Computed example of a mutant assay.
Amino acid sequence: MAIPERFSNLPDYAFPRLRALLSGIEPGGEPMVLTIGEPRHAMPDFVAATMAENIHLFEKYPSNEGTAALLDAISGWIGRRHGIEVSPSRIMTLNGTREGLFNAALALAPEKKKGKQPVILVPNPFYQVYAVAAAAVGAEPVFVPATDETGHLPDYASLGADVLDRTVIAYICSPANPQGSVADEDYLERLITLADKHDFLVFSDECYSEIWREAPPPGALAVATRMGLADRVVMFNSLSKRSNLPGLRSGFAAGSEGNIAQMRRLRSYSGAPLSLPAQAVSTAVWSDEAHVDASRALYQRKYDVADRVLGNVPGYRGPEGGFFLWLPVEDGEEAATRLWREAGIQVLPGAYLSREVDGQNPGQGYIRVALVADEEETERALGRLKDVIYKEGS
């Protein structure tokens, strides 16, 4: 059997491509892997005890949309963090945000819009699940460059009315992966106004929202609520980055009651709910901010390290949030290969996170570096990186 045609033009995922690129090359130093966005800070110290106290709940089937206690905890967190009231009926738990970002498109994207193939807008570069979701629902993905000229956020308003009138979903990530740019309230207001004018939904990927430099990023659902347009936004967040629990696979989606009801309906047929012990742990973790503050302080110190080591590199731009550096280079693949061969440092070519459009790949001249190691290792790795990539005459 042939694979479905809608998936035939998807490029290989970034990390298999990187393995192929570096295959057969010996690292030129102590290996330092700065590719994957897997937090290495300590998880909350109460997680193990909470899991142990609830271990007997593996005997029971879990609730699909989330236990009442967990939904209440998430609702309370949204209220404290974003200053809006979102009832539990407007929230659904997820196995991490990737599941939700994909399945929400299945649940909410119509097969046609105004009798034509629908469009899904994707920032370029982007988290790869956005493009796969578009392919799965038969939508046309339109990749919109998020470059230095646009503040590393997509300028969806620059698209023509013919595209916007077919749009059913626009993805936005803030703080952005990989660039670390934050969509401020003005940007979000313009995007939500555009969505209302052209009748589409905004899927707001906010999984890096609790890692920031100077001020907490605004949430799209909060902005939409103040505008009276909450039905235009579905927000996604998780405990992976906020609480250093990527293996727990625990997140949520929140939006209007109608949109969440449709997502819950699909999930009741095809989703895999979180186990009850995992939901108990999640309830405790969403209810605690002390560990989040401590982890954020560590990232802020690593921002300072990056600024100190790389601040004089032409084109360097420290992130506003998240834990990635988006570093300018001549060619991302060549830089990644040199770093591995000469210094044992593994980074991700920016082109692997982007799509070529009209002969241009906006990630081609970048590498992504994850600030997930401790402060000392981060400083050592960035120093070695600078010596290889940015030394005079290189």
Results as ranks from 00 to 15, higher is better:
S250A: 15
T50S: 11
E330H: 12
I55N: 04
V137F: 10
L327P: 00
A253P: 01
Y352R: 01
S240I: 00
M32H: 00
G311M: 11
T35F: 04
T147C: 09
L121T: 04
S174A: 13
P31N: 08
A48W: 05
I211Y: 07
N103E: 00
G24F: 01
I3P: 06
I367G: 02
F7A: 08
V372Y: 07
D387A: 15
F126A: 09
A107F: 02
D184I: 06
T97S: 08
S8V: 11
I84R: 01
Y208Q: 09
F143P: 06
N244M: 10
V313F: 03
G100W: 14
T147H: 06
S238L: 11
R213C: 09
P154K: 05
Q262L: 13
P27V: 10
V292N: 01
P27Y: 04
N103V: 03
G228Q: 03
L371S: 11
A20E: 15
R296C: 06
N124H: 09
L371D: 12
S23G: 12
P314G: 06
L274D: 12
A195N: 01
V369F: 12
Q346K: 15
N312H: 14
E330L: 06
P125R: 02
A176C: 03
N177P: 01
F7S: 12
E85H: 09
S89R: 13
A290R: 15
L70E: 08
K116H: 07
L188N: 05
K197D: 04
A253K: 02
S270H: 03
A336I: 12
W326Y: 15
R384P: 02
A230P: 03
P16M: 05
G393I: 02
Y316A: 01
Q179F: 00
P88E: 12
K60M: 07
E53W: 03
S89E: 15
L108P: 11
E320C: 07
P314V: 05
K241I: 15
G344K: 00
L298F: 01
A52T: 09
P319G: 03
V168W: 02
L229W: 04
G271M: 07
Y352M: 05
E30A: 14
D358A: 15
E85A: 14
I36E: 15
I84K: 00
E375S: 06
L194F: 02
L10I: 13
A183P: 03
N124Y: 09
R80H: 14
Q179V: 06
T167R: 08
S270Y: 04
A215Y: 07
I211E: 01
E392L: 06
I74C: 04
G359L: 11
G311P: 11
P125M: 06
A284S: 13
A335I: 03
A52M: 12
G83L: 02
G180W: 02
F7C: 12
K302S: 00
E375C: 05
C173Q: 09
V132G: 04
I172V: 15
G228K: 12
A280W: 09
T67D: 11
V144E: 14
C207N: 11
I25T: 15
E210D: 12
A69C: 02
G28N: 07
A253G: 08
F46K: 08
Y299N: 10
A136Q: 13
